[in-house]
Design a protein around this nucleic acid. Structure first.
Lengths: 216, 216
DNA sequence: CAAAGTTAATCAATCGATTGATTACTCCAA
DNA sequence: TTGGAGTAATCAATCGATTGATTAACTTTG
């Protein structure tokens, strides 16, 4: 019984996460969510108190997963700074493709100034990722691998921003690129390797010193 | 008469733009907008047909000026392709800074697939801008100014995406950059020139052929 | 049996949109 | 210049639909 209850709550959270990310907070009605989850509408309030409570429950569940992901970025001393950036880009594009629903929801909520409590928590988590990348970039500058005049913070904005633009505006992206990125197979086999290759090339030309570029 | 009518429509558009930006599309009710604009509720539908029509009218009004500038830029035969890109970046960052509320709202709407008609029309208008930039890039490739293997569509995603990331998540950006971009003065004097310089440097290192870079 | 889980029905509030009536204005004939 | 027909603009009132939330009755479970 207790286990079934947890499973059911989890199932609701799964569906609600998807519907919220598709329609936004206001656009996703409790009726739509409950219908998609095949549960009675009153169950949402029974389990989570309110629509906002449901929304918060989704984030709290995901935060745990996020903290774990942060640990993955271990410090490998055997590879160059540029190779670390490359590995980070591979990890990042992979994670984005497999979690693009939540990523979209996350940045939608991040761009809303209301519900400030929640935005602050998301911001803090994002900051941890940012500082990890900044460390990698600074390391590359210090050991002479990267140019000294690079704008680290802007580079991060480019990495995250380029991905967000592509994933968060699927209709526009699909038309511009000429294939439908709503399909998971296209996302995985077309967009992901293309973004990965592009970001590597773009950042290599910006970050690396001239004499290092020809070596690679 | 005709003039007053235009003025009133323009006044409604001004107010609606602000309210939409503050509350989002769903959060901004027609009642709120009409009350703020001191007009009867029915006037919104009388003038713009529907709430969506009102939103689109705001959007189209904003787009006209920028597309004019783009057209002028594309037809200018006196400057190089790279200089055109530079000028475009200047136009773009300037517009973003002075319109960042609405820009945020725009990409929020674009990231939701509901309200198909509205999203489709926004997408179509955006596509025009995209194709203009693509023309500039292709021109640079054809005349040998740019590298032949650049990914034009991804470059566009980087331009738009980098900006969106910065202005759509003001809390996060402010913490990362170390100054509060909610202040208009900071936005204008700090962020704008920094983004402009960064994007120019980034794209120059990616787009230009090696022998051209040293010339510039 | 009692508590937890689940359901259909319903609540008040608010939404976008529309109606028909009324006012303000334009324009042309007298 | 004036008066009235015709059009555009504006208004209060209200429509049906949908929203999030709640109730009370019912079922399952321990």
């Amino acid at each position: 019984m207790e286990k079934e209850k947890v499973d059911k709550k989890d199932h609701i959270l799964d569906v609600a996460e998807r519907v919220f990310s598709e329609l936004g907070f206001d656009g996703a009605s409790t009726r739509t969510i409950s219908a998609e989850a095949c549960v009675n509408m009153a169950m949402l309030n029974y389990y989570f108190g309110s629509k906002e409570g449901l929304f918060l429950a989704i984030f709290k569940r995901k935060m745990i997963w996020f903290q774990e992901q942060l640990g993955i970025l271990g410090n490998d001393e055997t590879i160059s700074s540029w190779e670390k950036i490359e590995k980070y880009l591979e990890l990042y594009t992979q994670r984005v493709v497999s979690n693009n629903c939540f990523q979209k929801l996350l940045h939608q909520e991040l761009s809303m100034q209301r519900r400030g409590e929640l935005s602050d928590q998301i911001t803090d988590i994002m900051l941890k990722n940012v500082s990890e990348v900044k460390k990698l970039l600074q390391e590359g500058i210090n050991n002479g691998e990267f140019r000294k005049d690079i704008d680290s913070e802007m580079v991060i904005a480019t990495i995250y921003g380029t991905k967000n633009f592509l994933v968060n505006s699927p209709q526009l992206t699909s038309k511009v690129l000429g294939y439908d990125i709503h399909q998971d197979s296209v996302l995985e086999e077309q967009l992901k390797p293309r973004v990965e290759t592009y970001l590597k090339t773009l950042l290599k030309s910006y970050l690396l010193n001239e004499h290092d570029k020809s070596l690679k």
